[in-house]
Design a protein around this nucleic acid. Structure first.
Lengths: 117, 117
DNA sequence: CAGTATCCGGTAGGATACTG
DNA sequence: CAGTATCCTACCGGATACTG
């Protein structure tokens, strides 16, 4: 199935979720709707710029909803849409694989990098 | 789980499979062991350079095995390792999600990009 | 608070040419 | 056949400063 369309299907997802922050933002929002600053605090290391960009992309793709409240000071809340939530399970499947095989991969790298072998 | 370690687990996979060609190479090798040129032909658009790099990374991570036959002209065969094969299922889960939601995402983008709205 | 604007360095990856 | 070696560019993403 992956190669069925010349890789376009799988690439469609990968292009969407494989940047540095998207999965992390989605995973964070899985715990509930959050404001911009709360997200910023919840994701260590992300810059304002990248958080904004990531959220805009997710909003454009319909994975995240953005709600602006007409208050002073302004309040903006982000939440996963139904489609956004549906991404969590496939992502978890992949995450499980990562956790399960991370040790083996690290070991393989050390062997590969070791000039003595 | 995704955020449990600050996103390191999921990022470990993503960093490994999210470059432009890795998943496609893995998926192609799922159909059987192949030589360099066969892979090159099977994956439209990939350059020799990127195919080599991708294969080296996969080999380093222990996902792909490389067998050199002492012949003239040289023959090199690539195949998925057991761990490499184990990546296929999680990848398929993600691919299914992609195929299932691609239409919805495209629609969302068009709405988002339409200045009339 | 929730962004935008600008600058800037590193790197992914394409094109091309060469080799054991 | 199965790669290296180089060059070159686009763009990802960090740092910083400014704003409704």
């Amino acid at each position: 199935m992956i190669r069925g369309d010349g890789g376009r299907a799988i690439r469609a997802v990968l292009d969407r979720i494989c940047d540095k922050w998207t999965m992390l933002v989605v995973a964070t929002l899985d715990e509930g709707r959050l404001r911009f600053t709360e997200l910023h605090r919840s994701i260590p290391g992300i810059s304002q710029r990248m958080l904004t960009l990531t959220l805009r992309h997710l909003e454009r793709d319909g994975l995240v909803s953005r709600t602006v409240y007409a208050e002073v000071p302004p309040r903006v809340e982000y939440a996963l849409t139904t489609m956004g939530k549906s991404l969590i399970q496939p992502a978890l499947t992949l995450a499980s694989w990562a956790i399960e095989h991370n040790g083996q991969i690290q070991a393989s790298r050390e062997t590969y990098d070791d000039p003595a072998t």
